[in-house]
Design a binder for these strands. Structure first.
Lengths: 223, 223
DNA sequence: ATATCAATAAGGGTTTTTCCTTAATTTTCT
DNA sequence: AGAAAATTAAGGAAAAACCCTTATTGATAT
């Protein structure tokens, strides 16, 4: 990595992109940061600029901004450009599609700090893939998505230290039913007891950090 | 809060301060960000500048940079200035000393995002105290510091879902001893069973985020 | 419409955890 | 050196967790 890097940030949240740009430019190896917000602008930018890395924010909510399409098209036209995915909502099928169909180079959790991004850039420029720890961990226990509502209610009570009997009283069901829910959770998530269950659950929850999720942009009002 | 805010950042890690400065200046209500790295420079800066808020990074490791002294002195000389503490290693006695002796206005976890800082600034400028959620949670279970080495080893195995017998075999001690360690932990941390124990433990560990702790600065090399 | 899945529940049995007490040895701190 | 805390361990008993099987109801999906 002798030359300085030129990065294109594809991100539909302008304020987030601005903060990101400032942080990226802090790094001595990063020379230039461009910013586009959609498919057309991205391809236009690539025509007139030489870009090393695209950092692509996958926002699956909006339809007019399809990260998959951008990733695929760019990799076809410019195979040398590294594509790094930034996301908040990881799903296993997204992950598989991006890695296999689109040949992306890195997969990062948006909630993580800039240091994670720097590390990913280093790895990717060496020609290796970089999958962020939280995301790979999350994928392992992606079964959480398969947990039913009732099952999740039970886990929440387990974390508080309630017994099966106490949970039954709280949810107005039989202790035997609570037992079934717990046993089903054991099988779904391949754990041996409630201790391991909540252990995995909390680590997953934390990898997802849903409490911070509300604020896509770090720039809120001061009230 | 009609006027724009002038902030003084007291921080011994220059790179961290620079990133922080950029982020703070992103906010429309923040006009100016100064930066000092020690006691004398801070008092000098206060003599020639009108400052609204001091964001003070408490680094308890180094002795030449005593956050307590700065906080106390500033509050004596300039009672109108709000002091916000940024820290990575929260301890209950630090917290008490800062709030009671030094009259600081906010207490924040360094690992958290800029949005937390913005929220804290808003609260503090209204004259209220702001104690970040992670920190208050951490203080509640600050007893973790009282857990012995052996007890912590046992918790780690509990999280993996091992039974008392299995833990005993792993640590080459009697199951009865494992039982004693677990029972002692119950009393120390005021929980009812292992499930609640590991639940609290992981949440504490995560509030502390020791895995990210190594890197004080977000600006690492690209390798 | 019919198969699949979520949620409910029970009987009966084994294993594990949890609580109570008591106590010896080692380590650590003052 | 002496006190305090950590680590070790046991016997006995109650409570809870865990495993297996079977079964009904309601919702949802192909």
């Amino acid at each position: 990595m002798k030359n300085k890097l030129k990065i294109l940030l594809v991100e539909d949240s302008v304020s987030f992109a601005q903060g990101m740009e400032l942080l990226l430019l802090q790094h001595p190896k990063i020379e230039k940061v461009l910013h586009t917000i959609n498919y057309e602008a991205t391809l236009d930018a690539l025509k007139i600029n030489s870009i090393d890395i695209i950092i692509l924010d996958l926002n699956f909510e909006t339809k007019q901004f399809d990260g998959f399409m951008i990733a695929k098209k760019v990799k076809q036209q410019y195979p040398a450009i590294k594509i790094m995915i930034l996301t908040q909502h990881t799903r296993k099928h997204h992950y598989n599609r991006l890695l296999n169909e689109c040949n992306i180079d890195a997969y990062l959790d948006k909630q993580l700090g800039i240091e994670e991004t720097y590390a990913a850039i280093g790895t990717v420029m060496k020609g290796q893939h970089y999958i962020d720890k939280n995301i790979s961990e999350m994928l392992d226990i992606e079964h959480w998505m398969q947990a039913s509502m009732r099952e999740q209610e039970v886990i929440v009570q387990l974390m508080k230290g309630l017994t099966q009997k106490e949970i039954a009283d709280k949810l107005f069901i039989s202790p035997k039913t609570v037992e079934v829910h717990i046993r089903n959770l054991f099988h779904k998530f391949n754990v041996k007891n409630t201790t391991e269950l909540v252990s995995k659950y909390i680590r997953y929850k934390n990898a997802n950090r849903e409490n911070i999720d509300e604020s896509t942009s770090p720039f809120k009002s001061l009230g």
